[in-house]
Design a protein around this nucleic acid. Structure first.
Length: 445
RNA sequence: GGCGUGUUCGUCUAUCGGUUAGGACACAGCCCUCUCAAGGCUGAGAGAUGGGUUCGAUUCCCAUACACGCUACCA
């Protein structure tokens, strides 16, 4: 039998990074086994259900490169979807739930009390065979020992999560439920529901949670909790996927940078870890750097340009070629695209502003003299190529009996306003003679 | 309170009873170098605690501690 897995988010207005990883693991499993990945929107809570909230989820998955075989196509039109097991919005399945509740009642598994419908739960412990956690024996809690029954339809007529989740998984013929560990103990209820319907429960796999770097639970407002914060921070989707998959699964052979194709090939549930993991932004950065290096120069420039536009730095009419050449000097130098505007912003301002503290530190009396000497040489230099600029600087250094450093530092400061940046000679070539001399002289006077 | 899950360097992890406990990120130092980054080399850094089982436990069992989850007419 072909595997069918699903991701069933609730449209809350954002996609939690943990949810994104749950989606990822489901998707990886579907692709690894050649099965189907289904997207279902759990929007029983009408207040949360907005088109925008649904689109946030769809956009997030698309950004990551996670595609679904069945499910909605957009938030704007709930009837627009693909797959034979729809509707894929719970808000459109009310009739199904009603009928199923009647079925439970007629079978003697459900009854009314105080206007709500209750499910008649057994009193024995439940054995859960989890593909990740192993065999779990769920005993009754003290409250359950008093009364194990639970509500499946509220007195306002709204069916609750446990019920609809099970009905949908059953009708959509889900074979493997891969979800967060926070659902592990709920699984007893779900298994009981499946059995009451006379259906075979799916296989379960509960994956660990993602925690903040300090070990606390990652909640909505924490940094990096929202998936879309990552494109915002200039990360590549491939890098995020790599990071997420590493948090709970190991490729083996001490390998860490693994392509999606490689992951799909070797990913499987028994190797998924059982313990929660903290999200390390430093590690993501370093992984992102690896992926940024793999980008072609064209791809890098294109995305770099977008980062600048987003920062509002390309508002002047800068020459296309100039922008491209400027960005080319930044390749392999930054770890995220978001760093670019600060790293190379000096290319795109007419008047450079200098940090007084930096000036004091680098621009000493000696530095001033050296910069003036350099300005002289460069004024008379015709070939303003990186190689020529370098040769000229080194020649002057030799004459002055200095190493390159003492000349380089004040020059870099004059041109970029910073102590570090792209290759100095290449940056001068891009800036061009006019700008270079203007900045040198501007600082000298 | 009850129920469940987990616990190896700061972080993510490797280890299928016998290892100088390996790697990656971060950190420190050195080299390279026009700066930074990268790269090369080196360093520091871990089996929560206490009991068992065993010739031998990070690995198996139990307890404790701690963390996390669930315990709703939330999802």
């Amino acid at each position: 039998m072909s595997t069918r897995v699903r991701f069933a988010p609730s449209p809350t207005g954002y996609l939690h990074i943990g949810g994104a990883r749950t989606a990822l693991f489901n998707w990886l499993y579907a692709r690894h086994t050649g099965g189907k990945f289904i997207l279902r929107i759990e929007d029983t809570d009408a207040q949360r259900n907005t088109q925008e909230a649904v689109d946030v989820i769809l956009e997030g998955l698309r950004w990551l490169g996670i595609d679904w075989d069945e499910g909605p196509l957009c938030g704007c039109d709930p009837s627009a979807s693909k797959g034979e097991h729809g509707p894929y919005f719970q808000s459109q399945r009310a009739d199904i739930y009603r009928a199923k509740v009647e079925e439970l009642k007629s079978k003697g598994f459900a009854y009314d009390r105080d206007g709500a419908v209750y499910f008649k739960m057994g009193r024995e412990a439940t054995l859960i065979e989890d593909l990740v956690v192993g065999e779990v024996r769920r005993e009754l809690t003290d409250r359950e020992a008093l009364d194990p029954d639970f509500v499946i339809v509220r007195s306002d007529g709204q069916p609750v999560f446990h019920l609809v989740n099970v009905i949908d998984d059953m009708l959509m013929e889900i074979t493997h439920v891969i979800r967060g560990e926070d659902h592990l103990t709920n699984t007893a209820k779900h298994i009981a529901l499946f059995k009451a319907f006379g259906a075979e429960p799916p296989k379960y796999a509960h994956i660990p949670l993602i925690l903040n770097s300090d070990g606390s639970k990652m909640s909505k407002r924490d940094e990096g909790a929202s998936l879309m914060a990552y494109p915002e921070m200039g990360y590549l989707p491939e890098a995020l996927i790599n990071q997420l998959v590493l948090l709970g699964w190991t490729p083996g052979d001490n390998k860490e940078i693994v392509s999606v194709e490689e992951i799909i090939r070797s990913f499987d549930l028994p190797q998924v870890h059982r313990s929660n993991a903290r999200f390390d932004m430093n590690k993501l950065k370093s992984i992102n750097y690896e992926y940024m290096r793999q980008l072609s120069m064209e791809e890098f420039v294109e995305q770099g340009r977008k980062a600048f536009e987003k920062a509002g730095m390309l508002s002047g009419d800068w020459d296309e070629g100039y922008v491209t050449r400027a960005l080319e000097t930044c390749k392999d130098k930054v770890k995220t695209f978001a760093e670019l505007p600060e790293y190379a912003g000096f290319y795109f301002v007419e008047e450079l502003r200098y940090d007084p503290e930096l000036l004091e530190e680098v621009f000493t009396e000696e530095g001033r003299e050296r910069l003036a000497a350099l300005g002289q040489r460069y004024t008379n230099l015709e070939d303003f190529s990186a190689a020529s600029l370098e040769a000229e600087l080194k020649a002057l250094a030799k004459e002055l009996g200095l190493k390159a450093g003492p000349l380089v530092h004040p020059l870099r400061l004059a041109l970029t306003g910073a102590k570090s940046g792209p290759s100095l000679y290449h940056l001068m070539e891009v800036l061009g003679k006019e700008r270079v001399l203007k900045r040198i002289n501007g600082l000298l006077k």
